[in-house]
Amino acid sequence: MPPAIPVTLSTASVYPRRAAYAFESAAELGYDGVEVMVWSDPATQDPDVLARLSAHHEVPIRSLHAPTLLVSQGVWGRDPALKLRRTVDMAHELGAGTVVVHPPFRWQYRYARGFQDQVRELEAETGVTLAVENMYPWKARTRSDRHYVAYLPGWDATEHSYDSVTLDLSHAAVARQSGLALVKTFGEHLRHVHLADGTGVPRDEHLVPGRGTMDCAEVLMELASSGWAGDVVVEISTRRDRSAHERHGDLEAALTFARSYLAPVPTAYVPPPPERHHLPADAW
């Protein structure tokens, strides 16, 4: 019997390795599926390749992340509305039930004007859930408290009437928001969770859950006890791991953390420390 709340692996968690490695890792470690981050890796842009990877490793593709990051601005052209439409079409073709999308950047003002309407129309037309992700304020890299307006209509998903949202706990850490408070604020609109930790510094860390200061365990226990229906997606940064062994250990620790606190009877789990010390790189 499948778990009540599936725990899936984002292909972004293995960067700079490619999507094929994520499918292999998900199968080996026992993840319940994969979320495909659409970006420069050609496999992530090709539904036929993705379908073959899914079938070969017997790991379902449960969600896609639209190419709306700064690093994927050139994927599938420059029109963000068309890119979102293409992602939804690919999700529908692959049988993935959810598409994660960031709110528009402030310089994408034409896209931003119709963003909420497009999201609702695509959901109604295709049956795919478009879950808008919570973001965080961009802070100047100085001692000042100045913040840049980076997103339209804004970075804080609690201030906008999205039908479906994705809670990213690393983003919440940057914004200094409580994950548990966000779960309760989003309520029935919460459809998807990106599981990663952070320490509250002004950069997106995407740490293994349990290695930061976010209330990751409390969030997972609340989801499990409330009968929440959605996916918990491990979206950590392993880009500084120096070997396949280190990366495997981080992916395994994140999965164990998720399963420990999503269980009907939660069990405490503290992930082992990383095998080497490094500054966390800016992720996504």
Results as ranks from 00 to 15, higher is better:
residue 161 S to T: 15
residue 161 S to F: 15
residue 162 Y to N: 02
residue 164 S to K: 10
residue 164 S to Q: 06
residue 165 V to P: 11
residue 165 V to K: 12
residue 167 L to Y: 00
residue 169 L to G: 11
residue 169 L to Q: 04
residue 170 S to F: 01
residue 170 S to C: 05
residue 171 H to M: 08
residue 171 H to G: 08
residue 171 H to P: 07
residue 172 A to Y: 05
residue 173 A to I: 12
residue 173 A to W: 13
residue 174 V to N: 05
residue 176 R to H: 05
residue 179 G to P: 00
residue 179 G to N: 02
residue 180 L to K: 11
residue 186 F to Q: 00
residue 186 F to S: 10
residue 189 H to D: 15
residue 189 H to L: 06
residue 192 H to E: 09
residue 193 V to C: 06
residue 196 A to K: 15
residue 197 D to V: 05
residue 198 G to Y: 09
residue 198 G to C: 01
residue 198 G to K: 06
residue 199 T to E: 05
residue 199 T to W: 07
residue 200 G to M: 09
residue 203 R to Q: 09
residue 203 R to L: 13
residue 203 R to A: 15
residue 206 H to L: 06
residue 208 V to E: 02
residue 209 P to Q: 03
residue 210 G to P: 01
residue 214 M to I: 01
residue 215 D to Y: 09
residue 217 A to I: 14
residue 217 A to V: 12
residue 218 E to N: 13
residue 218 E to V: 11
residue 219 V to W: 00
residue 219 V to R: 02
residue 221 M to R: 15
residue 221 M to Y: 07
residue 222 E to K: 10
residue 226 S to G: 10
residue 226 S to T: 05
residue 228 W to Y: 01
residue 232 V to S: 01
residue 232 V to F: 01
residue 234 V to T: 10
residue 234 V to C: 12
residue 234 V to N: 03
residue 235 E to Y: 11
residue 235 E to P: 13
residue 236 I to E: 01
residue 239 R to W: 14
residue 240 R to M: 13
residue 240 R to L: 14
residue 240 R to D: 12
residue 242 R to E: 01
residue 244 A to M: 12
residue 244 A to L: 11
residue 245 H to G: 14
residue 247 R to A: 12
residue 247 R to H: 00
residue 248 H to S: 05
residue 248 H to N: 04
residue 248 H to L: 13
residue 249 G to S: 08
residue 250 D to N: 13
residue 250 D to K: 15
